[in-house]
Design a protein around this nucleic acid. Structure first.
Lengths: 119, 119
DNA sequence: CAGGATCCACGCTGATACTG
DNA sequence: CAGTATCAGCGTGGATCCTG
């Protein structure tokens, strides 16, 4: 993206995580159980078929997600996290923890503001 | 963003990191030294004044970055990372490390493909 | 020097309809 | 069931000009 001489490569990692629905998709797949296309749709009620497909393809291309097609009628396709994809788990968990702390901090600040305002 | 029952809060953390230039801005500020507006511009040659301002305001609002105005002519404004902002450092570093590994992995894969292709 | 204001382009995402 | 194709909207970021 930018030409930083070898430094800040968070951008690369973030490309694998960022996208309106990517984190949620990864979250569910990281539970370990392979999920069918429509199972994922049910878990992400607001995603469109199109976007789910696009994201899964992206993740598949990066070998973060594995796609297995069962040649049968009706078709069955299962998505699962790859071993390599598992390496994202601690990263996402860290982001998660920071996010939770950040929310809590904001909450405290706002409560504080309420208190001093009524003085 | 999405209504996940208390789980996956990476999204929150990512809002503090994501944005075309945010990682780079944070990277430079995390070096520790306060930087003036135009110093940052020089460090991010391709960013527009507008976007630098917008991102800095966002980061300031989240208390990740501190903005100090020296009332003088010509004006001088210094931006620095807050102590709270420092808590992002390990998170970004982890993303960076994953990114580097991811690039290396891709490189190896491509080299492998070249090799088997010419067989 | 450090911005603010305005206008504009493009890419991501969504909605909808169709298919092997 | 698991997609693909096409069209449309909107938000993020860019370009440019102006100012205390």
């Amino acid at each position: 993206m930018q030409k930083n001489p070898g430094q800040c490569q968070f951008v690369v990692a973030m490309d694998s995580i960022v996208g309106k629905w990517k984190p949620t998709i990864l979250y569910h797949l990281l539970q370990g159980k392979p999920l069918r296309f429509n199972e994922l749709r049910r878990l992400l009620p607001d995603i469109t078929q199109r976007m789910l497909t696009l994201y899964l393809r992206e993740l598949e291309e990066e070998e973060i997600v594995k796609r297995v097609v069962y040649p049968q009628i009706p078709p069955k396709v299962e998505y699962s996290i790859t071993e390599y994809g598992m390496s994202l788990s601690p990263v996402l968990e860290m982001l998660h923890r920071w996010g939770v702390a950040h929310i809590e901090r904001k909450r405290l600040k706002e409560a504080e503001n309420e208190r001093t305002k009524t003085d």
